[in-house]
């Protein structure tokens, strides 16, 4: 599939949870290599949209394709790790796991040799400026540090698409700028498609991103 093709295509997608319509006839088309910010009030269905694209949430009607394959199909199943995901809340764990081990999760299903995996993990951590966190216990890290590790974990996956659910929400202004800059550079240099949910006014003022506004389950 060429980069110019549509990377994510949703047509008439409906999601209802416990009788409440979360997504209504949602249509979205994201080209490969594009960077999109999805904005909207709380409860607009932004997180559900990301989960539907990931295959984590069922939808009742409509069609959805990611990287040219219908979500749920055999083909999609084969290359679904090409879609990286950073979730909204900082994950709290109550067992010992280091920063490096968290990043390693992104590479856990990659058919690579140990040395290659290790190199990839260290590269991803260096790209996110969190190499110093490799031996720190994840549970003791701040929200911002956890968020940086989450993005490094995604990069480790060698993704074609990055889905980010408010990745800068727990970062200070300097780190926020830094993360946005890294994402922009990943998009420009590696052609990574990025779909980011954000409330951040600074992110929404970015003129180089396509901004889509959601309201009551569909794009305004």
């Amino acid at each position: 599939m060429s980069r110019a093709d549509a990377c994510i295509t949703a047509e008439g997608v409906n999601v209802a949870i416990d009788g409440h319509h979360i997504l209504r006839d949602l249509c979205l088309s994201v080209s490969c290599g594009e960077r999109v910010i999805v904005a909207g009030p709380n409860g607009a269905g932004k997180t559900t949209l990301l989960k539907v694209i990931l295959g984590l949430q069922r939808w009742s009607t409509g069609t959805l394709q990611v990287l040219g394959a219908p979500v749920g199909s055999r083909e999609w199943w084969r290359h679904r790790r090409k879609v990286g995901y950073v979730n909204q809340e900082a994950i709290s764990v109550d067992f010992p796991i280091s920063g490096r081990e968290v990043v390693e999760i992104g590479a856990c299903t990659l058919p690579l040799r140990k040395r290659e995996k290790r190199r990839r993990i260290l590269d991803a951590m260096a790209a996110m400026g969190c190499s110093h966190l490799q031996h720190r216990m994840y549970a003791r890290l701040s929200g911002g540090e956890k968020q940086k590790l989450s993005i490094a974990r995604c990069l480790c996956q060698d993704p074609a698409v990055l889905l980010l659910d408010e990745p800068t929400s727990s970062l200070d202004p300097a780190s926020r700028r830094e993360v946005m800059e890294i994402l922009r550079s990943l998009n420009e240099k590696q052609g990574l498609t990025i779909v980011m949910v954000s409330h951040d006014s600074q992110a929404l003022s970015e003129t180089t991103w396509r901004i889509e506004r959601m309201e009551a389950g569909s794009f305004a």
Binding site: K51, L54, G55, L56, R80, R81, V83, G84, Y85, N87, I91, V93, F95, I97, V102, I105, G106, C108, T109, L110, R153, Q157
Partner: peptide, 12 residues
């Protein structure tokens, strides 16, 4: 064990 959705998104 870390996070089921993250594991799923990572290809598990």
């Amino acid at each position: 064990l870390f996070h089921r959705e993250i594991a799923f998104a990572s290809g598990v």
